[in-house]
Design a protein around this nucleic acid. Structure first.
Length: 360
DNA sequence: AAGGCGTGGCA
DNA sequence: TTGCCAAGCCT
C-alpha cells in the first residue's frame, strides 16, 4: 500500500524547489492546467538517458528549434540528425530517436501513444522512458526507476542488497510510493531529489524532505548506499586515424556502419582499434607521422589513437570514405573522439591558403 | 542476460 | 591521473 504522507511531503518540497528546465512545465503552471508537449517530454527523456541535465540543455534547444514537432523530426535526413546529436554520446539513441519519430509519424498519425504499455513498444523507449513519458505527459500512475530513484529508494528503505540484484526490490518500493494524483510531478520530484539532495557522494540529509523517514540516515549508512557490484577494469586499445586534406580544403571522412561503436556517425578512416591495429591508409598519399596521439576513454575501454596526416591533390581517388568540401565540414558534427583527432591533426598540416570555393 | 554503448565533470 | 558517475536501452 502507498504511504501518501511520503509522496505528499515530496510534492510539497517540489512545489518550492523544482528546477527550471527548457522541457519542463513547472508545478505552478502544471497546477494551472498547462500540459507539457509529449514530443518535448520524449525528446528530453531520451537525451537524458545516462546523461546530465547540463549536457542536454543546449542539445534539446537546438533540436526543438530545428524540428519543432515529431513529424518534422521524422522527415529529417539521417545524417542531419546524427550531426546534430554529435558530442552527446550513446549514438544508438539518435538512431532509435529517428526510428521512433518515423513510427509515431507514420503509424500513429504524429501523436505519441498515451499509455506506458504502448510507449514501451517504440524504438529506444524502455521501462524508464515509457514511465516518464506516460507520467509526465499523460498523467498515468507509472513509476519511474532510474539511477536517482534506485539510490533514493535504497537509502529510504535501507536496502543493503547490491545493484543490479536489488533492482526488483527498489522498483517495488518506487511503485508503492507513486501517487495517483500528480504522478508526473512526483516522477520529476523524486529525480530532482536524487540529483540535488540525495546525491551519490555526500547527500544533503539536513535539507531533505525525507530525512525523518529515511532508514539509511537513521543508521548513518546513507553514503554507503546503494551498494554496487565492483566494476571491471578498462583495457587499453590502440588505433591509427588518417586525416587527408585535399588541396581545395576538403576532408576525407567516412560514415561508420549503423551497428557498433559510434554507429552511423562520421569519422576518420583508420585501422581497427585493438592490441595490434592493422589497416591500410584510405588513399594513396605521402603520409606523415606528426607524432600525435588522441587519448579518449569510452564506456568499456581506453583508446590511444595515433594520427597520420597527408595533403592530396585534386585528382585523388580514395579507397574508403568521401571528401567533404571545406564549406560543408563542421568539426562539431563529429563524435568527440573524431573531433579531438581533427583538432590535433589539423594543426600538423600547413594552413590552407584562402582559395575560392570550387565547383565540385 | 551480461555486456556493448559516449561524454564531460568532478573528487 | 584515475575512477566514478548521469533521467537506460538493446541484444
Amino acid at each position: 500500500m502507498r504511504d501518501e504522507s511520503l509522496s505528499d511531503s515530496l510534492l510539497a518540497w517540489y512545489d518550492r524547489h523544482a528546477r527550471a528546465m527548457p522541457w519542463r512545465v513547472g508545478p505552478a503552471d502544471r497546477a494551472a492546467g498547462v500540459r507539457p508537449d509529449p514530443y518535448a517530454v520524449w525528446l528530453s527523456e531520451v537525451m537524458l538517458q545516462q546523461t546530465t541535465v547540463a549536457a542536454v540543455r543546449d542539445y534539446f534547444r537546438r533540436f526543438v528549434t530545428r524540428w519543432p514537432t515529431v513529424t518534422d523530426l521524422a522527415a529529417a535526413e539521417d545524417g542531419e540528425v546524427m550531426a546534430e546529436w554529435a558530442g552527446l554520446g550513446y549514438y544508438a539513441r539518435a538512431r532509435n530517436l529517428l526510428k521512433c519519430a518515423r513510427v509515431v509519424a507514420s503509424e500513429h498519425g504524429g501523436r505519441f501513444p498515451e499509455t506506458r504499455e504502448a510507449l514501451l513498444k517504440l524504438p529506444g523507449i524502455g521501462p524508464y522512458t515509457a514511465s516518464a513519458v506516460a507520467a509526465i505527459a499523460f498523467d498515468e500512475r507509472a513509476a519511474v526507476v532510474d539511477g536517482n530513484v534506485e539510490r533514493v529508494m535504497a537509502r529510504l528503505y535501507r536496502v543493503e542488497t547490491p545493484l543490479p540484484e536489488a533492482k526488483p526490490e527498489l522498483t517495488a518500493h518506487a511503485a508503492a510510493l507513486t501517487p495517483a494524483e500528480r504522478p508526473g510531478d512526483y516522477a520529476q520530484a523524486v529525480m530532482d531529489l536524487g540529483a540535488t539532495v540525495c546525491t551519490p557522494k555526500s547527500p544533503a540529509c539536513g535539507i531533505c524532505p525525507w530525512m525523518a523517514p529515511c532508514a539509511a540516515r537513521a543508521a548513518g549508512v546513507q553514503a554507503d548506499l546503494p551498494r554496487k557490484a565492483p566494476k571491471k577494469a578498462k583495457p587499453t586499445r590502440y588505433g591509427i586515424a588518417y586525416l587527408a586534406r585535399r588541396s581545395d580544403g576538403a576532408w576525407l571522412l567516412e560514415r561508420r556502419p549503423d551497428k557498433g561503436l559510434l554507429g552511423g556517425m562520421l569519422g576518420w578512416p583508420g585501422s581497427d582499434w585493438s592490441d595490434a591495429p592493422t589497416g591500410a591508409p584510405p588513399v594513396e598519399a605521402q603520409w606523415q607521422d606528426p607524432g600525435l596521439e588522441v587519448r579518449h576513454t569510452f564506456t568499456h575501454f581506453h583508446l590511444r589513437l595515433a594520427l597520420r596526416v597527408a595533403e592530396v591533390g585534386r585528382d585523388a581517388v580514395p579507397d574508403r570514405g568521401h571528401f567533404i568540401p571545406r564549406a560543408a565540414f563542421r568539426p562539431a558534427s563529429l563524435p568527440t573522439v573524431m573531433r579531438k583527432a581533427f583538432d590535433l591533426g589539423a594543426s600538423a598540416l600547413p594552413a590552407t591558403e584562402s582559395v575560392a570555393p570550387d565547383s565540385d
